[in-house]
Write a protein that binds this DNA or RNA. Structure first.
Length: 589
DNA sequence: CTAGGGTTAG
């Protein structure tokens, strides 16, 4: 004998149990018609059929079709199906449409209050993924009950929109903060380039005794990668090991660490992590390849790529960005061209605007500015800032103000506040001696209220103490010694054939003044201090906020030779390893 | 069947 169910329930037991955690009161019983068992079976069948149809929907119109079918069959009372419908809308990133709202209202109407939590959360998520934060917020405000998931969805939405202030406000107001909520804040700060705050949050989270998992760690590791300081890197790694998410066993933590170490300047540590990982995936391979490329070790990057192709792991778009930049930094034009041509056909990765940017960089560096420009013209998508930026950079290397102008004009539109573009163009004009144009660009900058960031270099002294130098900085207590050491060094370099590169001082002043300006560049001060205060044989590590200039690059090369020191400089783009008079970037950066 | 994720260039 089969006993007939008293009422038609559309929710799975797990959902009921979960809901009870938040709503211990007696659930409201909506008026439901009595349905005989045979019909119920039939309904269930229809439901699961519809669910599988929904599962394969890829367009809004298809989903709407299913919806009208649901209404025709009288299944519009079934929250389960409607909720699935909402989820599919989320998945296909339905453009903003009154339609989801309609379904939402329908679900609310038939489901009664005790369905709000689940459907509401689904709605918030859907709106957030559609990019409509206001609608998500509205649902959140309308919900009579919210759980930590509702809050976290919204926190993430604000964080993704760059509004960490509102995210923090919500987080503070959130009564039951769990690991996911904390993680949302940490990754939010990390993704908004606020690594210090991310790490502060990470520390607070530990002090609060909240558990840590691989996702939390990934956020914290990414934050320390941005800081580029070995001190934080090792601390976060310790926490990872202690939480049982060591890089050897966890591929997420492992690949994040590879990236972190290479951004902190220690390619050796990055490679050690890579080698010891038990499992490799596309993230770990790509991070390592990008790491090699970033440090100028192109052949290692390409070798690793070959190795990867022999495994099951399939390259993705980031992998190709890595190998293409590796090619461009070494002038491997033909190999780069070849990879670019076959990446879609052989590996199923169609070139994106980013890959076009790499190719423009590759061709541009090699001096083929016209060909690079032609490639941009044939792009199947609208070129973004990266593409024009690569062209602008190449114009600088080859001193071509005309092509630079074309690139810059596009950039001024795409990135009106990108200060670097103005500076680069103005420097290109300066190198060409076009001082009226320099003044024009400077005026343009001032008109927009943009100010040049002061150049600043950091150098690690004894016992990990960081010393900071600005260009022309005379505030360091050892300024006298530093200047003397620098003068000595330059004298010895001149003996070796060094001539100051005067075009690195883009000002319309006398040659003597230019030499003085160059002498006071922040990375030279940092170098001199590093030489003074660290032991012989010690690698000197400098981090600079702007791009290193030609003259300083020349000096670093020479200094590495005559002092027998290794010098590692991270500028705003990449790493330079100076050793025995040469740089890993091959004088191409 | 609802929340957090690592690698991207000039």
């Amino acid at each position: 004998m089969v006993s007939l169910p008293q009422k038609f329930s559309t929710t799975s037991p797990s959902i009921l149990i979960r809901r009870q955690c938040f709503k211990p009161q007696e659930p409201k019983t909506p008026d439901q018609p009595f349905i005989p068992f045979s019909q119920l079976q039939e309904r269930k069948l229809l439901e699961s059929e519809l669910i599988s149809v929904l599962h394969n929907c890829t367009e809004l119109s298809q989903i709407k079709q299913v919806h009208s079918h649901i209404i025709r069959k009288g299944l519009d009372q079934c929250c389960f199906v409607l909720t699935k419908l909402l989820r599919m809308l989320t998945k296909i990133e339905a453009p903003m449409d009154p339609y989801p709202r309609l379904i939402f209202d329908q679900v609310i109407r038939i489901g009664g209050l005790d369905l709000d939590l689940f459907v509401g959360n689904t709605m918030i998520d859907m709106y957030v993924k559609c990019g409509c934060l206001d609608c998500g917020r509205k649902v959140f405000d309308e919900m009579p009950d919210r759980d930590v998931i509702s809050w976290t969805s919204l926190i993430v939405a604000y964080a993704k929109g760059g509004d960490m202030e509102n995210a923090l406000g919500l987080f503070d107001a959130l009564p039951m903060k769990d690991m996911v909520a904390w993680t949302a804040m940490i990754t939010g700060y990390a993704q908004n380039s606020r690594p210090m705050e991310a790490l502060e949050f990470f520390e607070k989270m530990q002090n609060a005794g909240i558990e840590t998992d691989e996702v939390t760690l990934a956020g914290a590791i990414s934050a320390s990668a941005q800081l580029g300081a070995a001190k934080y890197a090792n601390w976060v790694r310790d926490v990872a090991e202690k939480s049982g998410f060591g890089p050897a066993d966890n591929v997420v933590v492992g690949s994040a660490l590879i990236d972190m170490y290479s951004k902190c300047g220690s390619l050796e540590d990055a490679y050690k992590v890579f080698e010891r990982m038990r499992e490799q995936n596309v993230f770990s391979y790509s991070s390592m390849i990008v790491g090699f490329a970033m440090h100028g070790f192109a052949s290692e990057a390409l070798k690793l790529f070959e190795e990867m192709l022999k495994t099951e792991v399939k390259p993705n778009k980031v992998t190709f960005v890595g190998v293409l930049t590796a090619c461009s930094h070494t002038g491997l034009v033909e190999q780069g061209r070849h990879l670019f041509q076959i990446m879609g056909k052989c590996y199923g990765v169609e070139p994106s605007a980013d890959h076009y940017a790499c190719m423009v960089d590759l061709l541009g560096r090699a001096g083929c500015l016209e060909e690079a420009l032609e490639l941009i013209r044939t792009m199947p998508m609208v070129p973004h800032g990266g593409v024009w930026g690569a062209l602008l950079g190449a114009s600088r290397i080859h001193g071509n103000p005309d092509v630079a102008e074309i690139a810059a004009n596009h950039l001024f539109e795409l990135e009106p506040n990108g200060i670097g573009n103005y500076i680069l163009l103005s420097n290109i004009y300066a190198s060409a001696g076009r001082w009226e144009d320099v003044l024009r660009v400077r005026k343009l900058m001032r008109g927009k209220g943009l100010k040049k960031n002061p150049a600043c270099s950091l150098v690690e002294g004894k016992e990990g103490v960081i010393h900071e130098f600005y260009a022309g900085d005379m505030t360091h207590p050892k300024t006298g010694e530093i200047k003397r050491a620098l003068k000595d060094l330059l004298e010895r370099l001149k003996f070796d054939g060094y001539q100051p590169n005067l075009s690195s001082a883009p000002y319309d002043v006398s040659d003597e003044d230019k030499k003085q300006i160059l002498m006071a560049h922040s990375e030279k001060l940092a170098l001199a201090y590093g030489l003074l205060c660290t032991d012989a044989g010690c690698t000197i590590r400098i981090v600079k906020n702007l791009r290193i200039c030609e003259d300083c690059h020349l000096v670093m090369c020479g200094a590495s030779k005559i002092t027998s020191r290794q010098i590692v400089i991270r500028d705003n783009m990449r790493f330079h390893h100076f050793r025995d008079g040469t740089c890993s970037c091959g004088n191409f950066w």
